[in-house]
Design a binder for these strands. Structure first.
Lengths: 158, 158
DNA sequence: TAGCAGTATCTGTCACGTCAACTATTGATT
DNA sequence: AATCAATAGTTGACGTGACAGATACTGCTA
């Protein structure tokens, strides 16, 4: 009664897939994070934010938009952006039509640091994550898990 | 110069797979954690520990062994076990031949709570994670990512 | 058996992220 | 124009995990 599943699928299949996903994430992050910090001087959370801003238009993103695109709560983001701003990689600017809001914009320095960090991080992922899977497996994983991003509560923008 | 990869594999393939794994983990945990807390009254970190002890022999595991099997540092585990012990689900016992060490053992209450929580959590994963993938996809993911657990630094015990 | 390197675990201190409550501003209603 | 619900963002208090350093014990060597 403790370890069986609905009989519709082979017992443990879902759990094995989930376990794999969980471990792949943990193990990879566990080495990717120190690597990024050593090379770029900041953690993955910063890179997430910088990358969002990099992909956005030149006038940056509002806190709200950052929140939707990240896995943070709004207050978490406030603090995160505080730190990145203190380091000079982003700047908070007034929003033309709305005095409540804030635009977060990449500084030139921020853009430079992003580029370097992104390239390094990508190489690292290519090497440490990619090396463990064949091309067919990568394709299968990418395709199977794609449903988790362009999806649900990512909500239409604008 | 910013977003291309080694030409040996289609650009972005590794990244797409990695992104998928990352998002699958985050999104699933983001809903599984509150669910577990609501049902079992404790978070996933507790379930991890309880499950390790459940799978171990009756005399439990040493902190050291727990550390190897979990994704925590030793000091993190000390605190985690503190809390679980305070809740009465595990007990620290002396190790017969070594007065430095500690055996962490499941209490009867701990065993009961584990069983219920594990069953609930599994059902939840089956439902929320499993529902998004076909059986073939589950199989592919499980097989592709298996390399991340029976692996490397899991190190032979004893 | 005194000394000492090594091992097992715990504690002080700190950084990060969350929740709930708060401030400021907007826009609709009257 | 005055009111007020809704929206944008920040802040206070707190829980959790990490790192480095402390403490207690073991087992080898002299």
């Amino acid at each position: 009664m403790t370890r069986d599943e609905d009989a519709s699928r082979p017992a443990g299949l879902v759990y094995d897939a989930w376990r794999g996903v969980l471990f792949a994430t943990s193990r990879t992050l566990q080495i990717a994070e120190p690597d990024l910090i050593a090379r770029a001087g900041f953690p993955l959370t910063w890179l997430d934010v910088l990358a969002q801003l990099y992909d956005a238009a030149d006038d940056g993103l509002r806190m709200q938009e950052l929140e939707q695109r990240s896995l943070f709560t709004r207050s978490g983001l406030t603090r995160l952006v505080d730190r990145i701003e203190a380091a000079g990689l982003v700047r908070r600017e007034a929003v033309p039509g709305d005095r409540r809001g804030v635009q977060v914009v990449l500084t030139p320095e921020g853009r430079r640091r992003h580029d370097a960090a992104f390239a390094d991080h990508n190489k690292f992922i290519e090497r440490e994550f990619g090396r463990r899977l064949t091309e067919a497996q990568l394709r299968a994983v990418a395709e199977a898990l794609a449903t988790f991003w362009h999806d649900d509560e990512v909500s239409a923008e604008g």
